[in-house]
Design a protein around this nucleic acid. Structure first.
Length: 452
RNA sequence: GUGGCUGUAGCUCAGUUGGUUAGAGCAUCAGAUUGUGGUUCUGAGGGUCGUGGGUUCGAACCCCAUCAGCCACCCCA
């Protein structure tokens, strides 16, 4: 016998968990659709050439490669090192995110697509990372992107989507933070080290986690001198309301054309829109977000401070994403929802509605064979009226059938035995209240409709 | 890739300085109750103590190796 296990970093989702996850997916999907986004699905695997080099060195390492079929021994012998070996033997890999496959799709279908193209995609992605808390090797991403439009209206709409989704889920106290990569670029320019933009963003990104001193140490390790670090510190310490912050940033970064452009964009998104939002996005110049390909506005959605989960979504604008596949000049902006973390937030705040758990509404107990010809037409009638119902398939002890109904949280149990048959009635038990009443068979549907 | 912690019943965990037959709660099954669940009571089944080696008269316990899981770092969602 083999001990049953699943691969590291993967999970089974039991029925009640799937239901809760579907509840989240369904709300996100509905909102995406409401904003005019179209669904897209791409294959679980992509050609290696599509994926390699798109996520940096680290990304290549974390890619799940798929071993080719056929006679690979001969090929393997030609390899000089591991890296060459995998490129010789693995023509395909599991997708690492949804953005690159999307870019590939856009380029391949550019002649059919009506631009600006708004698509959403909810599918799993795979990373050969070492799993830890809240990080898995297989997990879902929920992305919505718009390509082929430079308008900042898109950014506003995406912020509005975050607002809608979180409000619909009943999450109160979430935060939306906004920044612009151009401002960070301007900062790097100002201290005369534009080539260190990535190092600076990575360090700044950790501010929440390691604090100001930690960031300063990290910057030093990444090769910045004291004067530069002082300037960055000054930048990070800017406080106040949005307009105040902008004014101070303006003063600090007045020499950088790039930064000025970034601030213009932010101003337009944050202060000129009339879109009513439940939660006002906040300018946070310390927001960096790891991904390198962002070039404009960056967005982060944070869970309510009380739950200590941090980011539950993020996104931003990236210029020229499709350029990698030979279609240049197309800008994109997108957001992503972190479903696993949102799940934890809802769980912790007890925000899953009870109805999410219900599947079958009515269970017919099987008392004897004679009742089956009565039960089947009733089942059909209920199902035609969208009332999920089933009959217990085996004729076992009453007690056992009741326990089954209870365990499955089925709200109503229908009993038709000898005495019910004699009266042309059905005994209907409300499992929550424990009350049971005998009602005429033809009234069953209306009776249930009234109570469900 | 680097470091730390933990592996005992299906699950969560006890287990004395190394000493008879390794325990509990939950879950499962059966009975109390052949037409009434969720609460109760009674009973039962379930273990190569992760695996392999070593020390010892004797190992769940000590040592070594190995595998697996968890956590942190790097990076990221």
């Amino acid at each position: 016998m083999i001990k049953p296990t699943i691969p590291k970093g993967t999970r089974d989702f039991s029925p009640e968990i799937v239901r809760r996850r579907n509840y989240i997916f369904q709300i996100i999907r509905t909102v995406f659709e409401k904003y005019g986004f179209q669904p897209l699905e791409t294959p679980a695997m992509e050609d290696m050439s599509t994926l390699t080099g798109k996520y940096g060195e680290e990304g290549d390492k974390l890619m799940f490669r798929i071993l080719d079929n056929g006679d690979i021994i001969e090929k393997a012998k030609q390899a000089k090192d591991n890296k060459e070996l995998s490129s010789l033997l693995c023509g395909k890999a599991l997708r690492y995110d949804l953005t690159i496959p999307f870019a590939r799709y856009v380029v391949m279908h550019q002649n059919e697509i009506a631009f600006p193209f708004k698509r959403y995609q909810i599918q799993p992605v795979w990373r050969a990372d070492r799993p830890q808390k809240g990080r898995y090797r297989e997990f879902y991403q929920c992305d919505a992107d718009i390509v082929g439009s430079d308008s900042l209206i898109n950014e506003t709409e995406l912020l509005s989507i975050y607002d809608q989704v979180f409000s619909s889920l009943g999450i109160k106290g979430f935060e939306l933070r906004v920044n612009n990569r151009k401002i960070l670029s301007g900062l790097a320019e100002m201290i005369g080290r534009p080539e260190l933009l990535t190092d600076i963003t990575i360090a700044i990104d950790k501010l929440d986690k390691i604090g100001l001193e930690g960031v300063k140490n990290e910057l030093e390790e990444r090769g910045l001198d004291k004067i530069s670090i002082e300037k960055i510190e000054k930048f990070l310490n800017i406080q106040g309301g949005g307009e105040e912050k902008l004014a101070q940033l303006q003063a600090l970064l007045h020499d950088s054309v790039t930064a000025q452009k970034g601030m213009e964009e932010l101003k337009e998104v944050l202060f000129s829109g009339n879109i009513p939002l439940q939660v006002k996005p906040r300018l946070d110049q310390t927001l960096a977000r790891g991904l390198n390909y962002y070039t404009g506005i960056i967005i982060e959605a944070k869970a309510p401070a009380a739950v200590k989960i941090g980011s539950i979504g993020g996104g931003g604008r990236y210029d020229d994403l499709t350029g990698l596949f030979g279609l240049s000049g197309i800008s994109g902006v997108g957001i992503s929802f972190g479903v696993d973390r949102i799940y934890d937030v809802l769980e912790e705040l007890n925000l899953f509605p009870d109805v999410v758990q219900q599947s079958t509404q009515v269970l017919f107990l099987q008392m004897d064979k004679e009742s089956l010809p009565i039960i089947f037409p009733l089942l059909q009638k209920l199902r035609e009226n969208n009332i999920a119902s089933e009959v217990y398939p085996d004729q076992v002890k009453f007690d056992k059938q009741m326990k089954y109904a209870n365990k499955r949280s089925i709200p109503f149990v229908a009993i038709i035995g000898e005495s019910e048959r004699a009266e042309n009635a059905v005994s209907l038990k409300n499992m929550q209240s424990g009350k049971q009443e005998k009602i005429p068979m033809e009234n069953m549907l209306n009776h249930l409709k009234a109570q469900l």
